[in-house]
Write a protein that binds this DNA or RNA. Structure first.
Lengths: 132, 132
DNA sequence: TCTTGACCTTCCACTTACGGGAGACTTTAT
DNA sequence: ATAAAGTCTCCCGTAAGTGGAAGGTCAAGA
């Protein structure tokens, strides 16, 4: 099938699928006469796989790694688990960062009247010089 | 003061300070003979302000807006509050996304032995075709 | 057969918020 | 005087694509 069909089946955009082809993540065959990319059902499986991994915040390089593990039937599951646990750690780290931000922003915005008066503790907070 | 001093005082890198100058976020005077940027104490205040806002996940464009509110003594506090509440919403949205990711990744990784055997439910999960 | 329109190709520029480095110039220190 | 440090502009790179231009390919209709 052509790239448009593969894109539709995988739920990705044509641009994205072509991008994955260009970076060698998922390399379809190419028709020698028309130069069109030709996707197999297996390729579509891989596109779906990567699409899902991307949704789960794995980077392209991580996807590349996961994909090779996915293709290698003898890989030890510990490899996969390692990547996943690392990702969980990253997510939790980012979540705790965001949590502090939210807490702080909530704190300062609670004291802001949010009316026509120019007096604003949020601005004051951002302008505060804190020694660190 | 020169850019290096301003950078040190604001805790930003020279590159970053120059970047802010280039995009017109914080525009110092320029020495007419040496072409060096000359930062005032007020400029440093602005750099600190922006540095802090950036840490709190405000984008450059949001910083630009906050900065103009910071400089405009007559602005209504409602403007500032609006931007802040929007940011809080964004943070909370991202947090809930990350929370689902984490939950799902934890779920699938719990069932993975993580040993030498190739059998891996994480890969299986990523390869699953879910209809949506 | 010709043409139209949909699809495909490559290539380039743009996005965010900078960081790295080249090569040239200015200032400061020895 | 000279060396070192600081600064300047300019260009390239990042991640993961998106958008567009110019051109090639294919199937269908007149």
């Amino acid at each position: 099938m052509n790239i448009g069909t593969a894109a539709k089946k995988s739920g990705l955009s044509v641009k994205t699928v072509r991008f994955y082809s260009n970076i060698g993540l998922i390399s379809p065959d190419k028709s020698s006469d028309s130069n069109y990319r030709i996707y197999s059902n297996q390729d579509v499986e891989k596109l779906l796989f990567v699409g899902k991994a991307r949704k789960f915040d794995f980077s392209i390089e991580e996807c590349r790694e996961l994909l090779s593990l996915y293709e290698n039937k003898d890989r030890p599951s510990s490899e996969v688990k390692k990547i996943t646990l690392k990702k969980i750690k990253e997510i939790e780290h980012r979540m705790s960062e965001l949590d502090s931000l939210r807490t702080e922003l909530k704190r300062v915005s609670k004291n802001c009247h949010g009316d026509q008066r120019p007096d604003c503790p949020i601005i004051g907070f951002l302008a505060e010089k804190n020694r660190n």
